[in-house]
Write a protein that binds this DNA or RNA. Structure first.
Lengths: 305, 305
DNA sequence: TACAAATTTTGTCCAGGACAAAATGAAAGC
DNA sequence: GCTTTCATTTTGTCCTGGACAAAATTTGTA
């Protein structure tokens, strides 16, 4: 069995697939057609991708998500790509969130307690929903950016994720009231292990009086179906991070929609599905947290108690 | 672009990968070597897996996770597999924990609120540490067994995990006091994504007055090292589930021990390392939760404030 | 200008071969 | 006895280069 992990100065193709969301087959065929990426080879002839190429692949992935075509960008230089990204509508490198420098310092020195205290303070000041939309969303973006730029280690990012978990779980618990309607089942597909989006969705829906049941990440499709029909569920909500392959998301959602009774609504949120609404008939794509509230209102309008 | 989806009476290889967790390459090589699965082919010669074969693959996957070898099970008939499943549940089927039937019912009907309430109640009655050792440990075992036997769906298991998370995070938060010593960094290696052991360890150490910093799961070795030396850490604690390959655990721990300053202790807990103390000089293997307390006492005896 | 047809682009699948890591079994040492 | 070391089998992942349908784009026509 081969090793998927880090040789001295690069990573294997499986790791690249995991980190960029680009399937192995696609990575190989791009190499053949466009000459990029061009990984090194180890003693056994296997591809070893240097970190710089993986970074560039991530950049390409972002432009791809914006609708650009591979033939225009895969062979392009890093500078051209940076320019395209600037020019794109999504450009706006968001101004650093309030208190960013302090928070970044906490992450860098692994001070979880201080980080949690700061987050908790914002939460109390703003209330849960504004905290989510105005603080956590830009902050999570900024953390991702800082990691890309190398200003923040993986450990720092993990620390952030962990503290957000703590704060949000506490907030959801204190919202209490499991009683309401609709009854929403939250989870992700297999191979999607980002739990933050899920948790943020739960934190957004719970105070609106919905009855949220989270299964955490990575529930097989058949089990989602089973849980939804068993548990008196009204809405199944799925979360997709930017690293999830959009085609797989569309494919899985379509299959799930077909297998689920028509009476159960299907909602999908997150970067990977943001642009896919037209490919997803019968599925409510949720653009952002505010849109989630809108979807909830729609559902209630259509289902008067 | 090919369609990954459901033809009239079967699904494509990508969908099988998603639903069973078995990689495409593995599915193809099994077909070649063992003659199973044997999917139909569509007009274009592509594999189309009937639902019955996908179900059988799921069963095989469960037996595989239990430690059986592919050569013995992949070619076996469905009846043989069912028999193996009956026969295997390891040596002693442990007496069901108190209230097991009720709890199992909660999981089966996806009633997260009731499950959480029951757990919370046990916690209050027993106190955190007894709750961990006497309730949660056997309960988690029983949930794993129930899943293996097919009495509990993946969704049910996920629901359990999620509620334990909620209860334990709440308990840890209410223990408060981040002040103490030693300062313990908790995490897992990459490819180890079970977070329950980690959380249980944190819940055991925190009330003893240790200063716990958890990074969640899957921190690369280099980042563990970085975080430990940056953050004024006294002890690095790693958790390994039963599914983690023991050899990889030993190798990773040895490497980490070598890279970490001698002044920082390294502890390892969980099924995969329980029998490996001899192979791990300089590392404290923690046999169970009680032994964790013992390790803490040892550390304090060796490091008088 | 709108729509249909022809063309190009693009991602996923296939076959069959290869090999290192893991698991197992056999032999040797305490 | 019981481990430890070595040889053998098993097993999962990666490789190459070819193929083709679905999607996207361009061209042609009403």
């Amino acid at each position: 069995m081969k090793n998927l992990t880090n040789h001295s100065d690069g990573v294997g193709i499986a790791a690249v697939e995991r980190d960029t969301g680009l399937p192995k087959d696609t990575l190989r065929v791009w190499e053949r057609r466009y000459g990029f990426p061009q990984p090194l080879r180890d003693a056994n002839g296997e591809r070893v991708y240097p970190a710089a190429q993986v970074d560039k692949l991530r950049l390409i992935r972002r432009l791809l998500d914006q609708g650009l075509r591979p033939s225009r960008i895969v062979a392009a230089s890093t500078e051209e790509l940076a320019q395209l990204l600037e020019a794109s509508p999504e450009a706006a490198p968001p101004a650093a969130p309030a208190g960013w420098d302090t928070l970044l310092a906490f992450m860098q020195r692994q001070d979880g307690a201080a980080l949690q205290r700061a987050l908790q303070q914002s939460l109390l000041k703003q209330g849960l929903q504004r905290f989510l939309a105005d603080t956590l969303t830009p902050l999570t973006d900024a953390v991702g950016q800082a990691w890309l730029r190398g200003e923040l280690s993986v450990a720092g990012e993990h620390l952030y994720t962990e503290q957000v978990h703590n704060v949000l779980r506490g907030a959801i618990a204190s919202q209490g009231g499991h009683g309401g309607s609709p009854s929403i089942l939250l989870t992700t597909f297999p191979n999607e292990l980002h739990s933050l989006g899920l948790l943020m969705a739960e934190a957004m829906f719970a105070p609106e009086g919905a009855r949220c049941t989270s299964l955490g990440t990575q529930t097989p499709l058949a089990d989602i179906e089973h849980a939804a029909t068993q548990g008196g569920i009204d809405v199944v909500a799925l979360s997709f991070s930017a690293a999830y392959p959009p085609r797989q998301a569309v494919e899985g959602l379509t299959t799930l929609r077909a297998r689920l009774p028509a009476g159960i609504a299907l909602w999908a949120g997150g970067q990977a599905v943001r642009e896919q609404q037209r490919k997803l008939p019968g599925i409510r794509v949720i653009a952002d947290l505010h849109d989630g509230i809108a979807a909830l209102a729609e559902w209630r309008a259509a289902h008067p108690a």
